[in-house]
Design a protein around this nucleic acid. Structure first.
Lengths: 236, 236
DNA sequence: GGTGATACATGATAAAAATCATGTTTCGAC
DNA sequence: GTCGAAACATGATTTTTATCATGTATCACC
């Protein structure tokens, strides 16, 4: 099955502007373009496994990726999601340690690969890139700590509401502005919020009965946003 | 109540060697020593509050600190613990954002304060310090993600066992090699593992009945380490 | 267009944990 | 030492969530 797939150019890559490579000069972009590789990945493909040693990093030009970790019982925990403009696998690279997480494509993607050497030499000569990486790490850390509080203190219903709001932002909505573009399975959602699949299904249909959501097959439409926000009991 | 309190010298500060300031040169240490302040803090004192803007960072010479975040319902979540050699508040400083966490002394401490300017100028001229900060951030992130999995997938009993093992390492033991030096209250432990105080108390006495622990007032003695490890179901 | 496999759904039940209630102990301030 | 507050402890009960069971819908693939 062929897919229209054009290797994107770093110079004209729009997602790049919001990524850590937004700080590179024209010259540096040229070198990036020269040394990178780019591939089309089908949903389900694994970019790397937890425990592997990194040989480069992955820059998402299009598509979505989930970052997971398996617990003792063998259950998958979705730690984080990544989309166009996000760079995955950079942490293992800068820390020189094995991957903490596995990365799996969850929506057909075009993803560029930047070899370790290229990345390190860019980092060595451009302090702005180092600064940008520190910023990225601090952001990831803040989110991880926020999620800790949510997992510790909120009930599943609240975490689900919270997650649906996050998914709205992450995937965007269809033209009606209310239907999630998300193709996550109920199981994925459960693995993200840390609960059983059945519990997610049950709570979704509970939200549906309460007129907060409208479920049409896999599609989730938010029909009462204020009520969903309420159910999430967010800070701000 | 007076306490013997000597202002520690950076040059001779032992905990420093394992901290991010272990990478500084003699010359840089001199400047650190010149600009830093150092104070004695009683247990209970707050170093900074979540949401505040940082004006420097705190370097723990002696004592313990808890880093917390309050959830929606007002409950405290202990996100992380810090001890001698640990630097707290550096993340807000390097990211230029408000503190994500509050820091409270939980064991009488002598803590040095390094002003923002001093820290930033050290960072600007010593790339090794920047590298060390990145390493610290990646470590903190890995731990936060590990805790996410634990909170999501493990039961309270397992998390408690896990936490007791962590506390053994964090606080060390008395001369018998089995009694925790920890002075954490049951409530603090509950806030760390994300459960109710009564549940912690109940499970501790359950462990005690099973011959895994021996409880003498606040003191916790581990009498069957293998069984505790078993109850924790750790990776490795 | 049939046919497995997989995802979704819902009920029944059990297990885990929170909450409420009520003592007891510990400990610091006076 | 005494008093009061806070921490610790335990029982009873309810709520939340997981687990098990079973059935239906959906969808890729031959």
């Amino acid at each position: 099955m062929k897919n229209t797939f054009e290797i994107p150019h770093c110079e004209t890559c729009l997602p790049r502007l919001h990524s850590m490579f937004g700080v590179l000069s024209q010259d540096e972009l040229g070198r990036l373009q020269l040394h990178k590789g780019c591939n089309f990945h089908r949903s389900g493909q694994v970019l790397f496994y937890e425990g592997d040693y990194p040989s480069g990093l992955y820059c998402i030009n299009r598509g979505k990726v989930k970052l997971t970790k398996v617990g003792e019982a063998g259950r998958e925990q979705i730690v984080r999601l990544a989309r166009e403009g996000d760079v995955v696998g950079y942490r293992a690279l800068v820390s020189g340690t094995p991957y903490e997480l596995s990365a799996t494509v969850i929506e057909d993607a075009s993803i560029c690969f930047v070899p370790r050497q290229t990345f390190h030499s860019l980092m060595n000569e451009n302090p702005a890139l180092t600064g940008r990486i520190i910023r990225q790490l601090t952001q990831d850390l803040a989110k991880a700590e926020q999620k800790q509080v949510s997992l510790s203190q909120k009930q599943v219903r609240e975490r689900l509401a919270e997650t649906l709001l996050m998914l709205t932002e992450f995937y965007g909505t269809e033209d009606d502005h209310h239907t999630l573009r998300s193709k996550l399975s109920r199981e994925d959602i459960a693995n993200y919020i840390g609960t059983a699949t059945e519990t997610v299904i049950r709570l979704l249909s509970e939200f549906s009965k309460e007129g907060i959501l409208l479920l049409e097959g896999k599609k989730i439409k938010i029909v009462n946003l204020p009520a969903l926000r309420d159910a999430a009991r967010l800070p701000d």
